[in-house]
Amino acid sequence: MTIPAIPTPAADVRVLQSVPSYASAQAIVDQLSDAGFPVERIRIVGTGLRTVEQVTGRLTTGRAAGRGALSGLWFGLMVGILFGLFAPGFGFLWILLISLLMGALFGAIAGAVAHAATAGRRDFSSIQGLEASSYDILVEAAHIGEAERLLGGGAPVAPAQR
């Protein structure tokens, strides 16, 4: 099995099309793939990147403690399994239960203390991500004609800006 070479930034690429959303870019690449085009010669490049933070809700000390308790449960589960496997003579389930409870307790305390330490400067929870204002579908210059033909022509061809 031959693994295709990853194109280098120095490759001569051309803009096949610019679209406003990633879903549109994905649909174009999928259309080319369905037509048998060598898609390893394509790049999707987001331009105009910005950070977007979606606020998901109010964060109270109780919610912070609850999230900490959930994190602590996972840690307690891992510790409980490890100790339970290697601790002879003591019941595996008791070790697991004690580890889960201790993990949840310490996680809740840590979550509450961490939230209280912000002194109200960040009383909300959020998810951060990157978003682009547009997406360019770049194709290696040697394959641009075939890509345009498969898409039905009409796609603007311009040298890619690096």
Rank of each mutant, 00 (worst) to 15 (best):
G62Q: 08
A158L: 13
A117Y: 06
A119F: 11
L16H: 05
A87S: 15
D136Q: 13
S99W: 10
A116M: 10
S21C: 05
A132D: 05
I144C: 10
A25W: 05
G145Q: 05
V39E: 00
L49K: 08
L82G: 14
R162V: 01
R149G: 04
E131N: 05
S24H: 15
A69P: 00
L105Y: 05
L59D: 11
A108D: 11
G46K: 07
Q31K: 13
R67Q: 04
S134K: 03
A87I: 15
A117I: 04
R122C: 11
G80C: 05
V79F: 01
M1P: 13
L77Q: 01
D34G: 06
F83I: 15
F124D: 10
V113G: 00
P156E: 07
E140L: 12
F83W: 13
A147G: 00
A64Y: 07
D30V: 02
D136R: 06
A23T: 14
G66W: 02
H115M: 12
V19S: 02
A155Y: 01
A158G: 07
I44Y: 10
I42T: 11
A10Q: 15
A117N: 07
A5Q: 09
M102G: 06
L70P: 04
V45S: 00
P159L: 03
L101M: 15
A5D: 10
M78Q: 03
F86A: 03
S18W: 00
G107R: 01
G68C: 04
V13R: 15
L97A: 14
A69D: 06
D12V: 00
A112Y: 05
G57E: 02
E131D: 07
G84M: 09
P38M: 09
S126P: 00
A64V: 11
Q161E: 13
V13L: 15
G152I: 03
V13S: 11
Q31D: 02
F92D: 02
A119K: 13
E53K: 09
L105K: 03
A11H: 07
V15W: 09
P156N: 09
G107C: 04
R41L: 10
P88S: 14
L59Q: 12
G154T: 02
A23P: 02
V113C: 02
I109N: 02
A132T: 04
G154E: 04
W94R: 08
D30W: 14
A69W: 02
A160N: 12
S126Y: 05
G46L: 09
